[in-house]
Write a protein that binds this DNA or RNA. Structure first.
Lengths: 116, 116
DNA sequence: TCAATATATGAATAACTGTTCATATATTAC
DNA sequence: GTAATATATGAACAGTTATTCATATATTGA
């Protein structure tokens, strides 16, 4: 593997890229955030929660699938700080944890020209 | 599986959630976009390209890993519209395809308090 | 045309992850 | 305490995917 022939023109960009790369730890954190919201089931849960908090059964109704599967995904969303939960009697009520989450979703939808 | 006991309080939110769920097709598209940028290797490539276009060898230098692995990931990024490519002699020069991609990255970094 | 460089790609393997099933925990009502 | 409801979770399985290896394609220069 030898040097790129156009090194001169791209030297600056290449140097900049090399010296400004985020650490592996930072990269992993950002990647984990995106991965967390990149599964259709989890994404549906977030979409369902846009209009307000919901208990698990209502989330199951909205997104489909089994209670167990939804519960597993809720756990992952919560572990990554995308949703928060509080108990209310027999129910656990979930809601979106952070306005940044809503903003990222909106931006992605805008990018894809979705009507959300 | 019976109804949630707090149906009355959450009825509105539940109805809203049900009637405003995006289609499966839209959900899949959004999920695919996030999944595309949720792998550390692909994310590193995007970070490397923030400062300007780079040929493949320079990308390999910046993100590490083998040429083959990087090339495979570039293919996926390109297929999802995250990067674009043009030939320049022997080299293929890659760059970020869309300002929305940069915006999503910045928002995620801001959310995680990364210094990017 | 031949050699060298740059990039892409098909196949195989290994690691990861979402779902399912069964079961456990927690709360409320009786 | 017991029954019923709501939610969570461990283990196993299945599907997905990133990497590696070997090789193919494309461009340039001689």
């Amino acid at each position: 593997m030898t040097k790129c022939l156009h090194e001169k023109e791209h030297e600056l960009a290449a140097k900049n890229a090399l010296s400004n790369m985020p650490s592996d730890e930072e990269t992993e954190r950002v990647a984990a955030l995106f991965k967390c919201i990149s599964e259709p089931c989890r994404l549906k849960i977030l979409f369902a929660l846009r209009h307000g908090e919901l208990c698990v059964l209502h989330i199951v109704e909205a997104v489909g699938g089994t209670q167990s599967a939804v519960s597993h995904q809720l756990r992952i969303l919560k572990a990554h700080g995308a949703v928060k939960a509080r108990r209310e009697g027999q129910n656990i009520v979930y809601s979106i944890a952070d306005e940044h989450v809503v903003a990222v979703l909106s931006l992605a939808c805008e990018h894809l020209h979705c009507k959300l």
